[in-house]
Design a protein around this nucleic acid. Sequence first.
DNA 1: CCTACCGATCGGTAGG
DNA 2: CCTACCGATCGGTAGG
Lengths: 203, 203
Amino acid sequence: MNESDDPKVRILEVATRLFAARGFDGVSIQAVADAVGMRGPSVLYHYRTKELLRDAVIAKLLGHWKDDLPRVLAAAQSGGDRLDGALRAMLGFFGDDPDRARLLLRELLDRPGPMRAVLAEQLQPWTRLVTDYVRIGQAEGRVRSDLDPEAYVLQMITAGIGTIATGDVVSAMFGPDRAPSRDAEVRELVRIARVALFNPRPE
Amino acid sequence: MNESDDPKVRILEVATRLFAARGFDGVSIQAVADAVGMRGPSVLYHYRTKELLRDAVIAKLLGHWKDDLPRVLAAAQSGGDRLDGALRAMLGFFGDDPDRARLLLRELLDRPGPMRAVLAEQLQPWTRLVTDYVRIGQAEGRVRSDLDPEAYVLQMITAGIGTIATGDVVSAMFGPDRAPSRDAEVRELVRIARVALFNPRPE
DNA sequence: CCTACCGATCGGTAGG
DNA sequence: CCTACCGATCGGTAGG
């Protein structure tokens, strides 16, 4: 069910793309209808208000968090280091569809209050796990003792989302020849994350 | 001249604040007029179109780049390490008025094409200087050789802007008790930047 | 800097 | 899923 020819699904996909690119206020019901090939009121037959369409777009985004991220993070734990895997999982999750990063960033800017509540509610147990694991690493001497676990994790998430959402635009500041590829950006972020996390190996 | 009771200046300040908070499409001329205490058409007397008002807001933002940043960066060079000073200067510049970071982020999302051009035009000579300096550090053995200069600088800028623009919202994911202060976020970013840049001191 | 007003577009409804 | 239509609001103009 819900094949890609399901009109409700098609509207959701189109709205996701348009909201990510131009923002909720920059996209009219008409624009969504045009892109999906129907009339304005027909869009409102599937989603009774524009606000409900936004809610559906956000719900899909958050749904992926709760479904994909834990699965891919669990898989990451079997590999080398857990935190390295978690960062790569996050980068893969947003890199798979940069609209996820752009939508999230727009919501953070447009509705900071509700987003604070959503983030606290949905992510708190999970971030607790990650920062606790960092603290264990500190107790074991593997992780640098002058590192602030919460601030460190926050910086890696902020950099990751920002890189996927706007990296290819900001990279233009180096000029067309020197602009790093997104692959290079991701590699560098992983390198930074690793070297900023672990104590140097004793020789 | 141009005291804060100059209506043209007051409109610009109000529009900057509103655009940063709700985005260009989310703010009507009426809303600006209400906030500044006049009627809609009076706003359009000072800025003939809404688009020209946006341009003025962006021009002020870019003006600060060209005026404040070089000055504060030059001052930074007299202190300890240049790159550390440059990062702190950038964080100070955006931290002085977080609306700068939010406006910039919105423009990057809303108008990626024009922003690529503007960034290349206005910042290319300057970023060239910074990355060249990183490469000198690599040649001297002070800077890690496996570091990608452009990608490294980009990550620090992305993290810095993201932290100022959305840090206090994203930090809610740790819960109300564990959320790091912005000071702690900035301190951690500076620590990350430093340890990810330099080779460890030989014992 | 105001009042009065414009056409266009907005999200949404009625009714089929 | 459509046509026809609604009141509200949009950016902007005329004229003073």
